[in-house]
Design a protein around this nucleic acid. Structure first.
Length: 547
RNA sequence: GGCCCCGUGGUCAAGCGGCUAAGACACCGCCCUUUCACGGCGGAAACGGGAGUUCGAUUCUCCCCGGGGUCACCA
């Protein structure tokens, strides 16, 4: 077989050489140890929460080493392309603080010198390598139809053979030049297959940065390199792109482990230096039956990245949760360094777990509560506002109408050594703060069981006349204690417990009634502070309520 | 089914031949407390099973079991 003639037959227009490509995309000349990483999502219109993991790992590896973090769009599957998908990818990663140094933009190409960053735009590049493989006899056109492949597959299964295109089951492998020409003349479409030099039974060893040394079967399948539309499969594109983009570390999910032998073979056959691989375990989800499985976009709303944004989880909370799963010492570090940025954390591949974590919403909530609790009121105001603008425009309007008032109630219990941890997500706030607005204020909780309506009214009567708006926090509560005594209640719960017969109840019962008419609920942050924020006029108006 | 990955409390996990087997979340109890939210103290809770190597295995090896992944002109 004249391979040169074959390559000319299939790629007559390809004139560029590999050497020219290598020169066009030279070594980056970064400093020693700088890592070049990428994320390479497919524009399917859906961004999985799990995508955040390799993304954050890649981003950290690049940016903590003065390297390059780039975005490549893997749009080689024309059947799966969805309008607006790239915008979604861009906005999703931007929202979670991923800063790309290079890569795809919404329009064609992108920014950077190693593009284009859309695989669909790189066909001429792949074809240079395809032609070279053809010349070396390492690839061949395959004219098998889908039906023929299926029939062959079925036959192999019946014979209990490993299904696939190889050995005796690679009919197009040894087509002559004339046969190929005849097929082409007949207008048959073809794919380009690798002529794998691998043999069944041979083993290869390989080091993964997380999994360690792996021993796998060598690839002996004649995998498809170029699909009939001339666009490469993932495998071929991965080798060519990560080589030419000078990627040093490939971070991806462990589902790629099974095709790793093919990738290793391709890098070797193409004469490329292999990148380091970091295969990370999947995030799992507990099933109702007690088992585990991958978070699934069809069954689990929390599998979609947008879920967290809609729920109002703080960006930093989500990032920290992801980081804490990635490096379990992160939480200890955070406790020791409450004011540093996540970027200051010494992220380490060595600390990554080889096993898959179960998604833990409790943990996310806890971390998010901690983050929100540590924000200042102004930051909370702005983040809450932006969440409301997307999800609750009515409340957003209130926030904007009187930012000072909003900031005042958002300040309650904030700051100091032990800030309140009331909220895991911003979506909980409009409801919680509604009572600060007269038109939203309603009493939703019942009176305490031991307080009748008449008794509540008696307390309110007494309090209304005792209320002094100039009291400070201490004086305010002292006054309430005194009033309790006057009305036959113990000034301290302890006193009541020691001698229940002597009192109608204790000061807590009084504040329960006040809390109810002031906030509409039996539970609330510090009443004195609430009244300060409400202001004397609004407080008095609410205290005028009778049951 | 073949091949591959994984296996310490409910969850995430320290551990890397000798430990009363850390810590965090969740759970329970007590304390603090005008409610709640914090905070403090305490509790229950784990090395999947079996062989081997070794003076000694959570740790090393093998087998089994369990969970997961993958076997496309999808990534």
């Amino acid at each position: 077989m004249d391979y040169r003639a074959l390559s000319q037959l299939l790629f007559p227009h390809v004139t560029e050489t590999i050497a020219e490509l290598e020169a066009r995309f030279p070594e980056r000349g970064l400093k020693e140890g700088a890592k070049v990483t990428r994320i390479a999502p497919s524009p399917t219109g859906f961004v999985h929460f799990g995508n955040l993991f390799p993304a954050l790992v890649s981003e950290r590896l690049a940016h903590s080493s003065d390297g390059v973090f780039l975005l490549r769009i893997e749009d080689t599957d024309s059947k799966r392309k969805v309008d607006g998908a790239v915008e979604l990818i861009l906005s999703s990663f931007a929202y979670y603080g991923m800063r790309f140094d290079e890569g795809a933009l919404i329009d064609e190409g992108g920014f950077g010198n190693y593009g284009p960053y859309y695989q669909s735009l790189r066909a001429p590049i792949y074809h240079v390598f395809a032609k070279s493989l053809l010349e070396q006899g390492l690839a061949y056109p395959c004219f098998c139809t889908k039906e023929e492949l299926e029939a062959q597959h079925a036959k192999q299964e019946a014979l209990k053979l490993t299904p696939g295109y190889y050995g005796d089951y690679a009919p197009c492998r040894d087509l002559t030049l004339n046969e190929i020409r005849a097929n082409l003349d007949a207008g048959k479409s073809y794919v380009l297959r690798l002529r794998s030099p691998g043999v069944p039974g041979a083993r290869i060893r390989f080091d993964d940065l997380i999994k360690g040394t792996l021993e796998l079967d060598e690839n002996y399948m004649d995998a498809v390199l170029l699909k009939s539309d001339g666009i490469p499969t993932y495998h071929f594109a991965h080798a060519v792109d990560d080589h030419l983009m000078r990627v040093t570390h490939v971070v991806r999910g462990e589902e790629w482990l099974s095709t790793l032998p093919l990738h290793i073979q391709l890098f070797s056959l193409l004469g490329f230096k292999r990148p380091k691989y970091v295969h990370i375990a999947h995030l799992m989800k507990r099933t109702p039956e007690g088992g585990k499985r991958k978070l699934s976009k069809r069954q689990d709303p929390e599998a979609t990245l947008s879920f967290y944004r809609k729920a109002g989880y703080p960006v930093e909370g989500v990032r920290e949760y992801v980081m804490s799963v990635l490096n379990s010492n992160y939480e200890d570090w955070r406790r020791a360094n409450p004011d540093l940025k996540l970027e200051d954390f010494p992220f380490s591949i060595q600390k990554m777990s080889a096993s898959g974590a179960l998604f833990d919403l409790d943990k996310l909530d806890d971390i998010s509560k901690e983050r929100i609790a540590r924000m200042d009121a102004k930051s909370v105001y702005y983040e809450l506002l932006s969440w409301c603008e997307e999800n609750e425009p009515d409340f957003a309007a209130r926030l904007k109408a009187d930012p000072g008032y909003a900031e005042a109630y958002l300040s309650i219990g904030r700051g100091g050594e032990k800030p309140r941890k009331d909220f895991a997500k911003f979506s909980e706030m409009p409801q919680a703060f509604a009572f600060f607005y007269d038109d939203l204020f309603r009493i939703t909780d019942p009176l305490p069981e031991n307080i009748t309506a008449d008794e509540a009214n008696r307390i309110l009567d007494a309090y209304e006349s005792a209320y002094c708006e100039s009291d400070d926090a201490q004086a305010w509560f002292d006054r309430l204690r005194k009033l309790a005594l006057t009305l036959g209640y113990a000034a301290k719960p302890k006193d009541y417990q020691m001698d229940p017969a002597a009192y109608r109840g204790h000061v807590g019962d009084l504040s329960a009634v006040l809390r109810l008419v002031l906030t509409g609920r039996r539970n609330s942050p510090d009443l004195y502070q609430v009244m300060q924020v409400l202001g004397a006029a609004r407080s008095r108006a609410r205290l005028a309520k009778r049951f």
